[in-house]
Amino acid sequence: MKILFLMSSVPDTTSKINFTDNDTKFDESGIQFVINPHDEFGLTKAVQIKEKNGAEITVLNVGTAKTEPVIRKVLAIGADKAVRIDAEPLDSYFTAVQIADYIKKHNDFDLIIAGKESLDYNGAMVHGLVAGMTGLKFVNAVMGLELKDDKTVEVAREIDGGKEYIETTLPLIIGGQKGLVKEEELRIPNMRGIMMARKKPLEVLPPVDAPVRTKIDKYEKPAPKGAIKLVDKDNLDELIDLLHNEAKVI
């Protein structure tokens, strides 16, 4: 089985977000990049499938050389080889075109694992656009995946207020998330993995020409909150009054 893992590298979740160049650019100074947390569940799932059924895992990232340390981390966790398409992921459409092009040229992946959304631009679209462009099957917000036989898979998809179980067939693209594997099963790189990762191939490919469809003109930070109003624990009537008359929520 061949698995393609789509990895988005994003600022560590505790990062303070700032903008530079007259608020036209995200300020990357001092930012630590990590594997997108939603993607991590899919990566561990891929490694589990490899251990159980045998599989070859390729990690694909559209990004500049800056993402290589994060790609190496994915190799250390268990991917067999890496491909980086050497471009700034300008917008989701551009990024999806690159990924779709790679998939079409290879055309032999059984399972393509993405995350349901990247935690930087929160688009929730790259993998779905790839599905549209390649005609591959696609299920989003996947919180469980079970291979029934060579062809059939059952996935659990998050729906508002619950889960929907869908039976479908490979090849398939999933947008993974929490639940795909248990939290305590998430893999982190160990020393042996890190050593081995150094020797694993990382191929760098040029991007294909593609237009962008959206463009960010400028950024701003959300308006700062006003100071908190503290209510004495023995005077909860005041809280009810504030919620009723000021916030108008009860």
């Binding site: 989701s92 459409y93 999806a96 349901k116 959304e117 929160n122 688009g123 929730a124 679209m125 790259v126 993998h127 779905g128 656009l129 599905a131 549209g132 462009m133 696609f138 299920v139 989003n140 917000a141 998809r157 998050e158 729906i159 508002d160 947008g175 469809r213 959206t214």
Partner: peptide
């Protein structure tokens, strides 16, 4: 959840620029 799932597929059919 449904609309988030459908969004990119629809964007592709419409050849639309998609903003979430």
């Amino acid at each position: 959840n449904d609309a988030v799932y459908m969004g990119p597929v629809l964007a592709d059919l419409l050849d639309a620029g998609y903003v979430s």
